[in-house]
Amino acid sequence: MRIMASMFISFKRIIKASGRSFGRNKGLAIVNIFIMVMMLSVITSLFFFNHISQFLILSIQARVDISAHFRFETLEQDIREIKEKIANMDGVEDVEYVSQEQALKDFIKRHQDDPVLMESLNVLGFNPFLSSLNIRAAGPVYYQAIAKFLETEPIKEFIEKVDYKETKPAIERIFALTANLNRVGIGLVAILAIMAVLIVFNTIRLAIYSSREEIKIQRLVGATNWFIRGPFLVQGMMIGVFAALICLSFFALGSWLISPRLELLLPGLNIFSFFIKNIWLIFLIQISIGIGLGMISSFLATRSYLKV
């Protein structure tokens, strides 16, 4: 009981000393918070960057699909059977049947304001469109299997052409490009994040360096290592909390301002709603990195001066 009371008194004194020191060294504290905000911003950007690149990849993946066009004489019954088989294949997300009539309707709907095209259609006198199956796969790796299936007998006989083969190099290029962009982007931000972490560590270390004489004196009058270190750790923690709160506010404001403009560029991407949806996760990442780094830096920086 007595030990608990004494621990409580020590804890209270450490907190009080931290608050006092924080208040007396406002300039230094502000610099530390500023550097920490920078570092947390870089790391939070990594989180946003990942979301945006995922969005880009998904939207490209959603756009690339295989269109199998069937010969005029193919019966709807046969096409529906093939559709069933494809739908049951691994990695197939969606198969859509577009009949000749539907294809014509879609064409007319799309080009009804173009008199030249409409007139050409009239002159032709018949529906030139083929029935087709639009197949969307979960990823590029499945396209090969789907293409092979479409080339097997007797399915091959029904098929006029498959669009996949024509667009395959383009699809592969896009995938390679997005994957590389993603890798380079994440790599760059990761390097920046490491640099930011080192800068924060050094800033806190310099701040504590100026207190090295004070730490030695505290040791000489009989203070325990934890009693000396405590206020520095709490101050490191306070820097982390303040920096996380400031950084969160910046990102809230920033994403709210940028979101409408970015949505014009990339329809469907709303980074403000992404921010709101993940606000607790973002805050958790920021505050845990902020507090963790603040405390670890303080711990390591005080270590060498405590050897008196």
């Binding site: 040791r219 000489l220 009058v221 009989g222 203070a223 325990t224 290592n225 405590l306």
Partner: peptide, 10 residues
């Protein structure tokens, strides 16, 4: 050791 040194100094 370190802890005993603190006790001594007190």
């Amino acid at each position: 050791k370190s802890t005993k040194v603190s006790e001594l100094r007190r």
